[in-house]
Structure formats: structure tokens, C-alpha cells
Nucleic acid binder design. Structure first.
Lengths: 151, 151
DNA sequence: TAAAAAAGTTGTAGTTTGCAAGTATTGTCG
DNA sequence: CGACAATACTTGCAAACTACAACTTTTTTA
């Protein structure tokens, strides 16, 4: 237990999830990239967030992110509205189309994951979900890692 | 439990691990990219694997991967040896320097992860590790997902 | 009110990516 | 055996992604 190769476990898991994610990013005839799907996801999750907030959450340079947003606006998936209180800030939100695409991807991902979970019994399922929640919580609270104030 | 947002759990976990990974990829004065660290990891894990095998495992286009390998060879971290039986095939392996860098990254990642696990009691730890193993196992065995024959 | 700071945007240049099309080697089938 | 397909990999090329520096605009600070 002590000499468990933790990195290996995480590396494999995240790679598998990443590959899944990669193949789940087209919906309604619109082909979006993996990065773009992450952005949609995060804009939806943090509603009324600014460009900088989302960029930080995703660990992306803000100049890169600014251009990514421009692309998504051109695709009519995202809108940018100036903050009423501070006009330097742009608030991001999804268009109806963006919401739809995000939901479709959500659906596909959850379908797949549920398929995986079907192979487990109730006890295992519950244990896995609780473990993931616990990990997320502890990683969020940890200060060991990086400088990025990822939310 | 049934209406757990599984995608969200995975998305957050993999993002946090990804950000960690991103910041853990320099060692011994050599700056390598996140992608490159994944490649080193996988070459080490599957010893004596071919270019195509690793590319498939990582879900990377083989032409892209070919060039990534060329870079790593220039950095003196990887070597390519023609297979004795089939001279079309190139077998990949790490140089001593490559092994060292991979180990350093491994160490850093495990240190961080152990720091996270320190905040849990024995029961929780064990449960989390078992859950990750179970997930990996079931995702590996699943055929639902994608076409990629990721090992 | 002038200077500093913050939020975004563009210039530019280097890197990454993947499809087409290529070479070299091996397998297949008449 | 010998042509033809298949496999493993490599390069040409064009598009996309990335980030540093420098800029504009707006807000905060002193």
C-alpha cells in the first residue's frame, strides 16, 4: 500500500478518460476540439464567470484563451457580455447552441461511464464515486502543488 | 447515486491531475513538455514496444508521434533500434538520461500524490486506491468506447 | 489627478498536429 | 516465383495551438 505506484494509477485513468473525451466531442454536426469541449463545460459550470477566471481554472495562458473564446464566438457557441460594474471584464456564457452541444457531450460521456459502472455491484459503485469525490476535495484543498489558483 | 454527474467527477479529477503533471515536467535542467513526459512514461512501462504501439496507446496520430520521437532522440532521452525480425519496425527505449528524467518526474508526482493521501485515514486510502484500480481495470476491458485499441 | 494595476486584445514567432503522399520492408496469393 | 497488397514508418505541407511582449481600455491607488 505504501509503495503503491500512485502516479501510474492516475496516469492510466486520466489517459483513458482523455481518449474517451477526445472521441466524444462532436455533436449536431459541429466538430469541436477537446480543448473547446472543456471550455464549454467550464463556462457552464461556473456561470457568469469572466475570461480570466475560466482561463485560470483551465490553466491556460490568457492570450491563448482569449483567442479560443473568439473561435467559439464565431461558432456561435459562446457569448461575451461586458460586466456592468467593471467594464474591463467580459462575462462568458453559452448560447442555446452551446448549451445543447455541451449537454450532448455530457450525455455521451455519462452514457459511457455508466456502461463502465454497470460492471460493478452497488457497493463497488458507491465506493468508487465516494473515492473520486474525496480525491477531488483533497486535491482542491491542497496547497502543495502549483501556483495556479485553479478556482 | 444513479443521477451522479460522473462526467463532472472525472473531468475535475483529470484536470487537476493534468495541471499537476504540467508543472512537474522539468528535471535535471531539462525542460520537457507534458506530452513528452507521457511518452517517456509509456516507453518505460511497455518495454520493447514499437513506435506504432506507443502511438496507439497514447491515442496520437502516428505521423505526429514519429516527429515527437525524433525530438526526444535529439534530446538524447530515447533511442530507436530496428527490430531484428522485421526491419520495418523500430523498437523504442529510454536512454540512461531518459530513465533518470522519468524517475525524477515519477518521484515528484508520487510525492505530491502522497501528500494528498496523507490527509486520509488508512481506510479511505485503501478504498481510493482500490477504486482507481477497479476503474482502470473496467475501462481497459470495456469495448463501448472508441476504436483506438489502446492496449 | 497622476501613476500603478488589472482585464483583455493583437503582433509575432515558434511549436504541434494530422492528412496526403512518399519509402522501405514484409506478407499474400495466383 | 512474382506481382500486388499490406504494414511500419517518414516527410511535405497547411492549419491550428501556444505564449511572450506590447498595446488599449478601464479601474484602483496614493
Amino acid at each position: 500500500m505504501e509503495n503503491e505506484n500512485l502516479r501510474g494509477l492516475f496516469q492510466l485513468l486520466t489517459r483513458r478518460f482523455g481518449l474517451l473525451n477526445k472521441n466524444c466531442c462532436s455533436a449536431d454536426g459541429i466538430e469541436i476540439s477537446l480543448v473547446q469541449s472543456h471550455i464549454l463545460y467550464e463556462i457552464h459550470r461556473q456561470s457568469k464567470a469572466s475570461i480570466q477566471q475560466i482561463a485560470e481554472t483551465l490553466g491556460t495562458d490568457i492570450t491563448t484563451f482569449s483567442r479560443q473564446i473568439q473561435s467559439l464566438i464565431k461558432l456561435n457557441l459562446v457569448t461575451k457580455t461586458p460586466d456592468a460594474e467593471d467594464r474591463r471584464i467580459s462575462i462568458l456564457s453559452l448560447t442555446d447552441e452551446g448549451v445543447k452541444i455541451n449537454q450532448t457531450i455530457d450525455q455521451q460521456m455519462n452514457d459511457y461511464l455508466n456502461e463502465i459502472f454497470k460492471t460493478m455491484n452497488e457497493f463497488e459503485k458507491e465506493s468508487v464515486v465516494r473515492s473520486l469525490q474525496l480525491l477531488n476535495d483533497r486535491m482542491l484543498k491542497s496547497s502543495v502543488c502549483c501556483t495556479t489558483p485553479w478556482e
